[in-house]
Simulated scan of single mutants.
Amino acid sequence: MPDADSFVVTSSCEECLREYNSPLTYSVVYHPASVAFYWERGIDVTAQGIWEFHEYVHEERWTSEQTASDPDEYEVVLRHGDDELRLHLDSTATVVRTERVRRESGEFRRS
């Protein structure tokens, strides 16, 4: 994966009993805050397959970074135009906090 998302999450499916790996950014795509963020911009991420998101990472519209260690914490940023959704995750890749940010006149404003 590109440097924009170099973290991998291992998940398991209780229905098919398989484990799979995915980039950290992909693990938050279907979170309610992400779905709403894109829905308000005319994009239904729930109607897209996970493979359709590769361009978001390769174009660095989706990024992730580790923000703390002991315990590990991460931030995933999803961008659309001048808007950002920042999702803060704990060491289990669970979203613990979100914030929306809008760029206005070259500066970001939180909402």
Rank of each mutant, 00 (worst) to 15 (best):
M1V: 12
P71K: 00
D44H: 08
V35L: 12
V57S: 03
G42Y: 09
L87S: 04
V28S: 01
E84S: 09
R41G: 10
R18L: 06
G49S: 13
D83H: 04
F7E: 03
E52Y: 08
Y26W: 06
Y56P: 00
V77K: 00
S27M: 02
Q48C: 11
S64R: 00
V9Q: 04
L87W: 01
E99K: 13
Y74D: 00
A93L: 10
L17D: 09
T46E: 15
R97M: 12
E55R: 15
E14R: 14
R79C: 08
Y74P: 00
E99W: 05
E40G: 14
S91C: 14
D70P: 01
E40N: 15
E73L: 04
T92D: 15
E107L: 13
R110F: 08
A47I: 04
E14W: 13
F37K: 03
C13Y: 08
Y30R: 06
R97G: 09
H80R: 07
E52F: 08
E75S: 03
T92Y: 07
E40L: 15
E59P: 01
Y20A: 13
V9A: 05
G81P: 03
P71H: 00
E104Y: 04
R41T: 08
D83V: 04
P23V: 05
E55S: 15
D72H: 03
Y74T: 01
T94M: 13
T46I: 14
G49H: 10
E60Q: 06
S11W: 00
C16V: 03
S34P: 03
D44T: 10
D3K: 12
Y20T: 12
H80K: 10
V28H: 00
T67R: 06
S64W: 00
R103L: 13
G49P: 05
Q66N: 13
V29N: 01
C13E: 08
E15T: 14
R18T: 05
R102W: 05
S64N: 04
T10C: 12
P71R: 02
E84N: 11
E84H: 11
D82C: 06
F7T: 05
L24Y: 01
E19P: 08
D3G: 15
V96T: 15
S6A: 14
T67H: 04
V96W: 07
R61T: 03
Y38E: 06
R110A: 11
P32M: 09
A4W: 02
L78A: 03
Q66F: 08
T98Y: 08
R18Y: 05
S22A: 12
D72C: 05
S27F: 00
F53D: 03
S22E: 11
W62H: 01
H80A: 09
E40T: 12
V28F: 01
S27D: 03
A33Q: 04
N21S: 12
E19V: 11
T92M: 14
S105W: 01
V45I: 15
S22F: 02
G81A: 04
E75T: 02
E40Y: 10
H31D: 11
V95G: 00
E75P: 01
S105V: 07
Y38R: 06
A33Y: 00
P71Y: 00
E52P: 11
T25R: 00
S91A: 15
W51R: 14
E99Q: 14
Y26A: 04
V77S: 01
V45E: 07
P23T: 09
Y20Q: 12
A47W: 02
I50T: 10
